[in-house]
Amino acid sequence: MITDIAPVDSHQPPSASMRALKENGYAIVREAVPAELIAAIDRDLDPRYAATPFCEGGFYGTRTKRFGRLLIRSPHVGALVMNPAILALAEAALGDWCERIQLNLAQAIELHPGALPQFPHRDQDMWQGTLGEVEYLVNVMWPLTPFTTENGATIIWPKSHGLEALIEEPAEEPIIAETMPGDAIVFLGSTLHGAGGNCSASVRRGIIISYCLGWLKPYENQWLAYPPDVAKDFPPELAALTGYVQHRPNLGNFEGQCPSILFRGYPPDPIAAVDALRPDQQALLADYIGDQRSAGGDGTLAA
């Protein structure tokens, strides 16, 4: 495996990260956030790490701990989810296939000594859509502790994304994403990857935050993780990212309206359904209605 990777400095233009992501299926952004922010998150999550039992099953790993709902477990996680540079990367990578992106997952992971290497996989396999043509997902791994070869740093197969995901054996040798707290490991949902094995005497902690197409069912059920009485206190942009907005046309509505109306409580009386269309659809509809009115005045064709 290769540890000599070509990271992208966070001070370089976003186009450098986007180019690396598109060409290699991953990008490592050094010093994407201050290490102090990561340290604060680690302190906030420490009690939950201690209380969480080990996973069950060979994929999650029996020497690994995982838990979600991170936006309510640390007030600092929102800064990772809404990081402008990372969010721009996700939107650029996924924007061709959706009207808006959504939060797919915010999960804490802790590999304990003795953890085996994870089964190499592609996260896009959660969905049974067309492969090789559409990108469904962007992952961002945020190390809370240093990621090293010994403690199970993320393993990535470069250029295994896109159409290459249809090929059984990757052409490139895998790299080991050795990184420090504050760095971000960004990779596509079509990129082959997996956690390394932890051969060290200490735990390896990280946070995986991922974004997916707004019309997909996300990995983590956001409405259960953050019900209206919780999400109402999020900044509007974060609430929208967790599902409290419609994906036009009309997808994800509540009684025909934006689900954010629940931030004021469940409506006591019946409410009207309201169109939520893209501008192009709205224009087509306006032309159609105009033609209908010109034809008959009442929606019927003129004689």
Rank of each mutant, 00 (worst) to 15 (best):
V77C: 09
G95A: 09
M82G: 02
G68S: 14
A92L: 01
S74Q: 12
N83S: 11
A88E: 15
A85Q: 15
F67R: 06
G95H: 09
L87G: 07
I86R: 10
R73M: 13
I72L: 10
L71W: 06
L87H: 11
S74A: 13
L80I: 11
E91M: 06
N83A: 09
M82H: 02
M82V: 04
L89H: 13
S74W: 13
G78E: 11
G68Y: 07
A79Q: 14
R66G: 01
A79V: 04
A79M: 10
R73N: 14
A79E: 15
I86C: 08
P75D: 11
P75M: 05
S74F: 13
A85H: 14
A90D: 04
L94I: 02
V81S: 00
F67C: 03
R73K: 14
L70N: 01
S74H: 12
P84S: 12
P75N: 06
F67M: 05
G95L: 10
L70P: 02
N83L: 01
A88D: 14
A92Y: 08
L89W: 07
L87C: 05
V81M: 00
P84G: 03
I72Y: 02
L94P: 01
V77F: 03
A90K: 08
L87E: 12
E91H: 07
G68E: 09
L70Q: 03
G95M: 09
A90C: 13
L70H: 03
L89N: 14
L80C: 02
I72V: 15
L71F: 09
R69M: 05
F67D: 00
M82Q: 10
P75L: 09
R66T: 15
I72S: 11
A79K: 12
P75G: 06
H76F: 15
R66H: 14
L71A: 07
V81N: 01
A88C: 06
F67P: 02
A92N: 11
I86L: 15
H76P: 00
R69A: 11
A93H: 09
R66A: 11
N83V: 01
L71N: 04
G68H: 12
R66F: 09
P75Q: 07
A93C: 06
N83G: 04
L94H: 04
S74T: 03
G68T: 03
L71H: 05
R66M: 13
R69T: 07
I72D: 08
H76S: 07
V77M: 02
A85T: 15
P75W: 04
A90I: 12
I72P: 00
I86D: 04
L94S: 04
G68M: 08
M82D: 02
V77Y: 02
G95V: 11
L94G: 03
I86V: 13
N83I: 00
P75T: 10
L87Y: 11
L71Q: 06
V81Q: 00
P75Y: 06
E91P: 01
I72A: 10
P84Y: 06
R73D: 13
R66S: 11
R66D: 05
I72C: 07
E91S: 07
A88G: 14
I86G: 04
